[in-house]
Simulated scan of single mutants.
Amino acid sequence: MTQLSTVPGDLSRLTTLVRSNDLEETKEIISNAYSPYELRCLGDAREFHAWYAESGFPGITVSGLQYGSPQLHAETLIRPQALDSYLLMCEVTHGRVTVSRPGREECSVEPGGTYVLDPYSGFQVHWSPGARMTTVRLERETMEQAAADSLGLDRPVRARFALGPSVSPQAARSWSGISQAVHREVLGDGIARQNPLVATHLTQATAAVLIQTQRLITPGVDPQRTGAVAHPAVRRAMALAQERADEPLTLADLAVAARVSPRALQEAFRCHLDTTPLGYLRDVRLDRAHQDLQTASRDGSAGVSDVAYRWGFANLGRFAASYRDRYGHPPSTTLNS
Rank of each mutant, 00 (worst) to 15 (best):
T135C: 14
H201N: 11
R160K: 12
L216G: 04
G220L: 05
H201E: 15
A162N: 09
R225M: 08
Q170D: 15
L210F: 04
E139I: 04
A131D: 01
V209P: 02
T114I: 15
P119K: 11
V116T: 13
A162L: 13
A205G: 07
T206P: 08
A172C: 11
S121R: 15
P196R: 04
G152P: 00
V125S: 10
S179M: 10
C107L: 04
R132S: 06
A147S: 09
A147H: 03
L117A: 14
P156Y: 05
Q212S: 14
L151R: 03
P129D: 07
W127T: 04
L216D: 05
T218C: 01
L187P: 03
T218Y: 02
A159M: 09
V198W: 10
T135G: 13
L197K: 07
Q204D: 14
V116G: 08
S176C: 15
S176P: 00
P196G: 04
V186S: 00
T213N: 06
P165H: 04
D154V: 09
H201I: 11
G164N: 05
Q180Y: 01
R173S: 15
V116Y: 02
W175H: 13
R215G: 05
T200F: 02
A207N: 07
V116C: 09
T213R: 02
L138W: 06
A181Q: 14
E110F: 02
R193E: 14
V167R: 04
Q194V: 13
A162S: 13
L202E: 08
Y115Q: 10
F161I: 10
S179E: 11
G164H: 01
H126N: 08
Q204P: 01
L202C: 08
A159G: 02
T142G: 02
P111T: 02
L138Y: 05
Q214C: 09
W175E: 15
S176D: 14
L202I: 09
E185P: 13
A208N: 07
D154A: 11
D149L: 13
V125E: 12
R173G: 14
P119R: 11
